[in-house]
Design a protein around this nucleic acid. Structure first.
Lengths: 191, 191, 191, 191
DNA sequence: AATGAATGAGTGTTCATTCAT
DNA sequence: TATGAATGAACACTCATTCAT
């Protein structure tokens, strides 16, 4: 037994992450029903059986992917930003720059895609998400400062994140697409 | 039961339309792979076999739906509008008003959804669509008039229609959602 | 809809019974793990899918078969017999005649087989079965009458039914086997 | 680690025997199809791969077990006994005492179980077994001596060994079961 | 024409077997 | 030699499609 417990754990975690990562891309592009386990396994480059060593079923794998598609980092970023002594417009510029940069990474696009689709499927409305509310807070302040467009802050936040979702979709589906530029993204909220 | 030839034709056409209409909603919400014929039939309120009296296969039904999801009317509207002696801004306002009104109808939302997803799946890029090009034409003129935002007209058209797609999705998925208002939609293109 | 509700129910019940009957024979001969659904379906002469219209899973089908393998009729017979004004030896002769006659039917042999294997798998011992206890009651009386062999009545009942199980097995597995004759079966309990 | 050739051989033989012993118990209880190699390995307390160092396949392991379930010793015992100047009844008593004593050992019960099931699965009938024939020979003589029950000697031998199989099964499946006593076992054949 | 029970090709899942360590 | 993670052939199960009514 030349492997230490630690190395062993590492290998298992690596494989699990790999499956999650590759699967989320595949599911995001093809949907649940149109994704065959056999194709998925081939795409990842492992045997079908291997998937079942890490996940009980296709269903469970899918649920795990959805669970991982949280927005904790975005929320933290926005909340931290909100406290800084900057104009709302400047904050929105920072957020936009960050988001556009992150969208270069396909994994991030997948995360945005899955997260947004989750929100759509809960018919509770999109407005209960912390990410939306945090941005709405900044927008509200910006409107008082007079530099942002008028309108319900939550609806504007919704439009903003919706647009981000739009470009995440394009990232995933369209080869050689052109990313929205920062000024256009900011313009959604700016007067 | 001496029904006329005409009545027969009418009944067949009615059923065919009904299946197409209800199916397109179902496919738009659930995707192709996640839609079972048995569920679909139950949703429509007919037997599974009945679907096969009107369509050769699930695939053909889906293709028919995609074929119907054209944008001929939008293109006509925009092209007609383009020729009128109005400012680009006014034209965009007219288009926006029209689109927002049409989106009250779920069927229209389905059409927009399916059409956009079709474009996404062709990785040729979204920019070959006549609908996009027609709008881009108006934007180009508007930019010369100086009233619209700067930027590649085609990309701005893409943003515009993408946003429309976004609210079509919301219409389909979210009970009691609030539609984007005209001024916000116009603001996407206006300075 | 030319079928009445009643006819429809009848057809469903018939198919369900047919699957249960044929499956129990197949499972009894081959065991659960060695029985393939595809073989089973072929054996019954129906499609694989049909089995799943009536039973959720292979497991559930198996459980249903076990549930049906009760011994209610035997217990009733023995209890009724117990009350009659006959000698224990005569009663045992009647039971033996009945059992040997029933064993001509393969279905009965299957029932006995499955029932006995159920008892074996509960490691509670075989002695909690009503069928064993009812026979033990008759044996006890017979021992007082002096015509039966000595020994723990419950253990003798166990030997008796065990022997019946043995010949049920032979019925299922051996082509052209010779059934035990009544006098030999009775001799197990008679002095 | 300078182990001698002999020590190596010994270790290999020990492991092989251990796998055979534990597997035969497992197969006897669960059947071939219901026994998973992974469960079997866990039960034995070795890795799955280890089994394949000693046996080519699950099938071969099973065949090896069946091969070992011969009755050479019983046949020898009975044949030796047959020649002795004893009454048939005495011989049967000796056989019964021996069998009951051996059945204290679970391994012996496994052997009987597998051997009998082998006979059942050949639908050639149980009567071609040397063990059955050897006992039938003694029974035949006993009937002439007038001390044994009447009936076809081979069928009586069959009943006798079947009963032994019955108690082997109980030994394997039922915790705290009570073994048949010698007089009851002998009574099967005695008048 | 309309139905839904029946079918079997296709997909999800298991498990005997291999192989890197 | 011993291990158990990885594999893919084989099996359980689903669902698009057919067909008897």
């Amino acid at each position: 037994m030349p492997k230490t417990e630690e190395q062993f754990r590492q290998m298992r975690d690596d494989m699990r992450s790999r499956i999650l990562r590759e699967s989320s891309l595949y599911f995001a592009k093809n949907g649940f029903g149109d994704t065959k386990i056999s194709d998925l396994a081939k795409h990842i480059g492992i045997g079908q059986g291997t998937i079942y060593l890490y996940f009980k079923s296709k269903e469970e794998l899918f649920e795990e992917i959805r669970k991982n598609a949280d927005n904790t980092n975005e929320v933290k970023l926005i909340k931290a930003l909100a406290k800084l002594p900057l104009s709302a417009a400047a904050k929105i510029e920072r957020i936009s720059a960050e988001v556009i940069k992150k969208l270069e990474d396909e994994e991030y696009a997948v995360k945005i895609t899955i997260y947004t689709q989750l929100l759509l499927e809960q018919d509770s409305g999109l407005y209960k998400s912390e990410m939306y509310e945090a941005l709405a807070g900044i927008i509200k302040k910006g409107q008082k400062e007079g530099r942002l467009v008028k309108g319900d802050p939550l609806m504007l936040a919704d439009l903003y994140w919706g647009t981000v979702y739009l470009y995440a979709l394009k990232k995933l589906f369209i080869k050689d697409f052109k990313m929205i530029d920062k000024s256009t993204l900011c313009h959604l909220l700016e007067g």
